Simulated scan of single mutants.
Amino acid sequence: MTLRIGTRASALAMAQTGQIADRLTRGSGEPVEIVKITTAGDRSTASLASLGGTGVFAAALREALLAGECDIVVHSLKDLPTSPLPGLVVAATPKRADARDALCARDGFTLETLPVGARVGTGSPRRRAQLLSRRPDLETLDIRGNVDTRLGRVSTGDLDAVVLAAAGLDRLGRLDAATQLLELSEWPTAPGQGSLALEVRAGEEHLVAALDHPATRLIVETERGVLARLEAGCAAPVGVTAMLDGGLLFASARVYSLDGSSLLTSSHALYPADTPAPADELARRIADELLAAGAAELAPLGG
């Protein structure tokens, strides 16, 4: 039996799907075919926020899976809506890569040393708010394009820097372009960033079950649970980071105003063995605290 894996055709999507294909082939000995699928996000040059953000890259992949055009789809988990789609199941979340953001700047600059008024590109409202929160003097520009296109705008001098996911740079062998890795304690990233989601039709979970990493699943379900309870999508400047340390599940979330001038933070921890649904419980505590503190008035939530 040939397993058909659906993916976007971008260099990054193909790189991460190729890694999954290799693991499936080694584990089962079965041949694998990669099926390239074009999504609405690939066809449009509009900003991700204006396109609706979350789901713009996932919808076409899921439609192909439901239509039987492929057997598995590989998503960047941060691009996958938090609401499940009837008939489909995220059957595996492989071990997470680096969840941090990376600043890729000319001349080795860091966020602290970038010149006043430096032009920094990002397509993410969260990253824009974080940049302005730390450096309100920066000029942030909305950009689209693949990793090489974005890095190219720095090398040509069109931009002074861009902010990209460290995991994506690493998967493409471009981590050397990073001049600073932004630590999660001060710069929480998108829920699920650095993680992949392997989605299959309900009842076919066995196809990828061997690739699931339980600790990663618990962590990313916590992060995505906060996002779901805040009813926040890609257009909302929300960063969440969770981790397991010494048996303790810890999570922290931060909601920013769009201009970065204000922010709210909530952090909680629990022992997973103490509750039947630890990810849900921790996400509820954090989201409830943020909403009670006025997060819905601070940022565009509810969509």
Rank of each mutant, 00 (worst) to 15 (best):
R4M: 04
R4V: 09
G6Q: 02
A9D: 10
A9S: 14
A9W: 05
A11N: 07
T25A: 15
S28Q: 08
I34V: 15
I34W: 03
T38E: 13
S47C: 12
L48W: 02
L48E: 04
S50F: 05
S50G: 07
G52V: 09
G53R: 02
F57A: 05
A60L: 00
A60M: 01
E63Q: 14
A64P: 02
L65E: 01
E69D: 13
C70V: 09
D71C: 06
I72H: 02
V74I: 12
H75M: 11
S76C: 10
K78E: 13
L80C: 04
T82E: 11
P86L: 12
G87F: 07
G87D: 07
G87L: 07
T93K: 06
T93G: 00
K95W: 08
A97P: 01
D98S: 13
A99P: 12
A99T: 06
A99V: 07
D101S: 13
A102W: 00
R106V: 13
G108R: 10
T113C: 06
P115T: 12
P115L: 08
V116P: 05
R119G: 02
V120P: 00
V120D: 01
S124Y: 03
R127S: 07
R128T: 07
R128W: 04
S133K: 05
D142R: 05
I143Q: 03
N146G: 15
R150L: 08
G152L: 06
G152V: 05
T156D: 14
G157Q: 11
L159A: 03
D160E: 13
A161D: 00
A165M: 05
A165W: 02
A166R: 00
A166I: 00
A167L: 02
R174K: 14
A178D: 02
L181G: 03
L181C: 07
L182V: 08
L182F: 06
E183C: 10
E183G: 10
L184V: 12
P188R: 06
P188A: 11
T189P: 00
T189M: 05
A190W: 07
P191I: 07
Q193K: 04
G194S: 11
G194T: 06
S195I: 10
L198C: 09
R201W: 05
G203D: 11
L207Y: 07
V208K: 02
L211W: 10
A215R: 14
V220Y: 04
E221K: 11
G225S: 09
A228Y: 04
A232Y: 00
A232P: 01
A235P: 02
G239H: 01
T241Q: 11
T241R: 12
M243R: 15
G246L: 12
G246A: 13
L248E: 15
L249F: 12
A251S: 15
R254T: 13
S261F: 05
H268T: 09
A269E: 14
L270D: 06
L270K: 08
P272N: 09
A273H: 14
P276G: 13
A279C: 09
E281H: 14
R285Y: 05
I286S: 04
E289N: 13
L291Y: 10
L291I: 15
A293N: 11
A295G: 12
A296I: 08
L298T: 11
A299L: 04
L301Y: 04
G303F: 08
G303P: 09
